[in-house]
Nucleic acid binder design. Structure first.
Length: 305
DNA sequence: GGGTAGACTTGCGATC
DNA sequence: CGTGCGCAAGTCTACC
């Protein structure tokens, strides 16, 4: 499920049930879901059993839950979750039947909500959970959305802040973009430059800003960049408000429900359909081993300099 | 360094 | 109807 709005829907759904909860049991059904965990399956289970969850945080498409270990004092580590292409975090009542594609289950006890199960299910196993040490952020700002502490898991340290993060350094971002000769879509998908944008929202933001996806980043004017940043934030905000984009059963919130943003798409997946601005057909081209969708009429390449 | 291709994996749907 | 193929919301690594 994948991009920022979908992951944020999951984060905000998990937070009320997980913050202040204690992990009572850990069940790993499929060790492939721990490929990013630096230790063994046993280490994962034992380190998490009895742990007390402190927060549920997100930067870009990465989620993490700082925890204090059983009998421990401060949160030095976090459970890191990445949903990959098809991961789900589901909240269930304690003892609920095993889900299709269930990989890992955390049984938790919450002071107000009682006994619950947090299920990590993932059809394609590109997603994963891991335990990871928390490192100080380089800018001393909170690590991400939902984080009070200025820390991020080691695996997230190289991921840039996302467009909805108040600590995003827009000056740095503009400088980076101005230096890159790569196609702007490639740069939007580079999570070390700005995070949280994937194939759907890259296409949507570029459509909104009327920018051809293969425009070299350094060919964009300051006006273009301003418009693009505004479109990125607008499309992410709107998708978040609509509960994310669901094409199939893969993306759902913690209760298994789909989002509505698929109805608001202007470019992504609309190959051959009339552009909502000019009526000409939306084009699809292969790009970076995936698809780009855009309007060849309203998203023109700028004149070469 | 930028870029590309490939690896990981399951399931769906249009095509033959 | 059966089969194989292309394609899918992501990230990381190896190699030019």
């Amino acid at each position: 499920m994948p991009e920022l709005p979908e992951v944020e829907v999951v984060r905000s759904g998990l937070a009320p049930a997980l913050v202040d909860a204690t992990v009572s049991a850990v069940t790993v059904h499929d060790a492939r879901a721990l490929t990013r965990h630096p230790g063994s399956v046993d280490d994962f289970e034992q380190s998490l059993r009895g742990a007390h969850v402190v927060a549920v945080c997100r930067r870009g498409k990465f989620l993490w839950m700082p925890f204090t270990p059983a009998g421990g004092s401060n949160a030095a580590r976090a459970v890191v979750a990445h949903l990959g292409m098809s991961g789900q975090m589901l909240l269930r009542f304690s003892g609920a039947p095993v889900e299709r594609h269930e990989r890992i289950r955390l049984d938790i006890d919450h002071p107000h909500h009682g006994a619950l199960a947090v299920v990590f299910a993932d059809q394609r196993t590109f997603g994963s959970l891991a335990l990871d040490p928390l490192l100080p952020t380089t800018d001393a700002a909170p690590g991400g959305f939902g984080a009070d502490e200025a820390t991020v898991p080691a695996q997230v340290a190289h991921i840039a802040r996302d467009p909805l993060d108040p600590a995003l350094d827009e000056t740095r971002l503009r400088r980076l973009w101005a230096r890159k000769r790569s196609a702007i879509k490639r740069v939007l998908l580079d999570q070390t430059v700005i995070s949280g944008i994937g194939n759907i929202y890259a296409d949507e933001a570029l459509w909104g800003a009327r920018i051809h996806p293969e425009t070299p980043a350094d060919a964009l004017s300051a006006r273009h960049v301003t418009r693009l940043l505004a479109e990125i934030r607008a499309v992410l905000d709107k998708a978040l408000a609509e509960g994310g984009t669901s094409f199939d059963a893969q993306y759902v919130n913690v209760n298994g429900q789909a989002g509505y943003f698929a109805h608001s798409l202007h470019a992504y997946g609309r190959t051959g359909a009339p552009c909502h601005r000019c009526g000409r057909p939306i084009a699809r081209v292969s790009f970076m081993n995936r698809s780009s969708h855009f309007c060849p009429s309203c998203q023109r390449m700028p004149r070469t300099r």
